[in-house]
């Protein structure tokens, strides 16, 4: 095989991911093994996630290679998420990538998870070229980035408390919906009136930062004030209004950032990018909008391998001693 291939490994949260991407950015395979065991705990449990990653990681790597019709012999290098994320979970991917790279004499690239989300936009078949504004919103992170080139980004704003996906999860729980909350809230909201209830949009947070803690509290009070029977009867309206508030809080800051930077191109990523109301709202802004395929928006290893196309590999000595980091600057 002549194409130079990159194996990516990503284990920062609860998905065990491996992918093979060509040097040209073509995705040859993108395997995600969603653990599906965290629903019963109502959220991701770090120790449970780490145990499951270890059980799955080698098989997921085998699958990614097989689906790419490749073997370890065809690899040009290996890329792995270094952080931010759950340290115990990250270390499974890191130990695996380090072991494979060392024993095969392959260069190793340490990739920042958030750079991975941004880099999902550079993959074939429809690469979106910088400069652009990028909104990444998921259960773990919510931030706005000015992407000037393919090797980095400047953070323009980030959440001060909960991530947008976390707001969906917590709201869902209050409404008696299952984890993860985003899809469940979206389904229920389809039958509700988004203007039925007023929820706060964190208007008091200046600039381009986000805050979802007040929104969550507001839903709690609203449910309490309605009383159990009435709150249950109006669940769809509550879900629709709550979803509208999250989407609007994100969109307002996207619009502000576009004005401030003068950018006319926008990309989104993270699991919340799957939300239809958010896509519709951002699509109506009137700038060029790139939404990667949904399996490239949620956590995946193709974006990690993709980011490594533009990254410098570690020296062999640094590759052997690579360690994880838990949180990025500002807790993105």
């Amino acid at each position: 095989m002549s194409a130079r291939l990159i194996l990516g490994i990503e284990t920062s949260c609860d998905d065990t991911c491996a992918a093979v991407v060509s040097e040209a950015g073509e995705i040859r395979s993108n395997v995600v093994s969603s653990q599906g065991i965290h629903d019963r705990y109502g959220g991701v449990v770090p120790e449970v996630a780490a145990r499951r990653h270890l059980e799955l990681v080698n098989v997921v790597v085998d699958d990614a290679l097989r689906q790419a019709d490749a073997t370890l012999d065809d690899l040009d290098r290996i890329a792995v998420t270094q952080g931010p994320g759950l340290v115990g979970a990250l270390l499974i991917g890191i130990a695996t990538a380090k072991g494979l790279a060392a024993a095969r004499g392959l260069p190793l690239c340490a990739v920042d998870h958030l750079q991975g989300h941004v880099s999902a936009n550079f993959l074939e078949p429809a690469p979106f070229e910088p400069p652009f504004l990028c909104l990444i919103a998921s259960g773990g992170h919510t931030f706005l980035a000015h992407v000037r080139d393919r090797t980095g980004f400047a953070v323009l704003g980030a959440t001060l408390d909960d991530a947008a996906g976390e707001a969906f999860d917590k709201g869902a729980r209050m409404l008696g919906l299952p984890f993860p909350g985003g899809p469940a809230v979206q389904r229920l909201a389809a039958d509700g009136d988004p203007s039925a209830f007023d929820f706060p949009l964190a208007a008091g947070v200046p600039g381009l930062d986000f805050s979802f803690a007040g929104l969550k509290t507001s839903l709690l009070y609203r449910i309490r004030d309605l009383g159990e029977a009435e709150a249950t009867r109006r669940r769809a309206d509550l879900a629709a209004s709550y979803q509208w508030a999250i989407v609007e809080a994100l969109a307002v800051r996207v619009e502000r950032a576009l004005r401030q930077t003068g950018l006319r191109r926008l990309a989104i990523g993270g699991g919340v990018a799957a939300n239809a109301a958010l896509r519709e709202r951002l699509g109506a802004i009137g700038v060029e909008l790139a939404v990667p395929a949904i399996d490239l928006c949620t956590d995946n290893a193709a974006m990690i391998a993709g980011a490594a196309r533009f990254a410098e590999p570690l020296s062999a000595a640094d590759a052997r001693t690579l360690d994880a980091y838990a949180t990025g600057q500002r807790g993105l």
Binding site: E47, A50, R51, L54, V57, N58, V61, D62, L72, V87, G88, L91, I92, A95, T96, A97, K98, G99, L100, A102, A103, R104
Partner: peptide, 19 residues
Amino acid sequence: TFTGLRIGVATARALAQAT
């Protein structure tokens, strides 16, 4: 320690997978 054990086992598995 759980984290230590996992680093050892993951490393051993990866080395075996590679060689």
